[in-house]
């Protein structure tokens, strides 16, 4: 396998030109956008503690609002799996170590086992189910199949989600970037060889599709 040169550092949020930068001189310049502001935060009177018993929680999952009564201690992963029957995300370490539970929260990859469901209120939760709606495989999924980047498959949904998130930030990654970028997921069967090939290939097909104007994900 050859190492391809990447695109340099991860896309900066600011990426200001020198002129922009000078314009900002003197005043405090925020280099980031706040996430999740586009959606209404829960209207709860602030400071009011909720629980420890069940409280109503509204989750927005794959674009759909779902109402649940949950104890504050219920994790997003348990809410998805046990309450909503959305089981693509898996529970393995339950301690933010293996990535099997990866979902997107406002488009950022997170370990759903270590997010409280109640904390996901007011944010967009995207699970793997979203990316194969109508039976169509996402290019990353297809590449996983083609490169046999799966054996038992238990880590696979987490890896697919991590790969989708990674490619969003690194549309044209080098092999080394792929390897390090997916360092937060674990597989026991040993499918990493296929995974790195699959992600490199998916990057190519997705870039081609983008250039062709079609939308993925």
């Amino acid at each position: 396998m050859k190492t391809k040169r990447g695109q340099g550092p991860e896309k900066g949020t600011g990426n200001v030109s020198r002129r922009d930068f000078l314009r900002g001189a003197g005043v405090a310049v925020s280099g980031t956008l706040l996430v999740g502001e586009s959606m209404a935060e829960p209207a709860e009177a602030s400071g009011q503690a909720r629980g420890p018993g069940e409280v109503p929680v509204t989750l927005r999952i794959n674009g759909e609002a779902r109402q649940l009564d949950l104890e504050p201690r219920v994790t997003l992963l348990d809410a998805l799996r046990d309450r909503l029957g959305i089981t693509g995300a898996k529970k393995v370490c339950d301690r933010a170590t293996c990535g099997a539970c990866t979902v997107l929260l406002d488009d950022e990859p997170v370990y759903a086992c270590t997010v409280l469901a109640i904390e996901a209120e007011g944010h967009n939760v995207t699970t793997i189910e979203h990316f194969s709606k109508g039976g169509q495989l996402h290019p990353v999924m297809k590449a996983f199949v083609d490169h046999d980047a799966q054996q038992c498959g238990f880590c696979t949904p987490g890896f697919v989600m991590a790969s989708i998130a990674f490619l969003k930030n690194h549309p044209n990654p080098s092999l080394e970037e792929v390897e390090k970028g997916l360092g937060g997921n674990l597989c026991r069967c040993g499918t990493y060889h296929g995974i790195r090939l699959a992600v490199l290939e998916a990057a190519k097909t997705m870039t081609a599709q983008d250039e062709g104007g079609s939308i993925h994900g």
Binding site: S46, R50, P72
Partner: peptide, 19 residues
């Protein structure tokens, strides 16, 4: 995990008051 009550203050001061 044991049960707990959850608070999500919107201001710094409020947060301190909840501790």
């Amino acid at each position: 995990m044991e049960r707990f009550e959850y608070a999500s203050p919107v201001s710094r001061k409020e947060a301190v008051g909840l501790l």
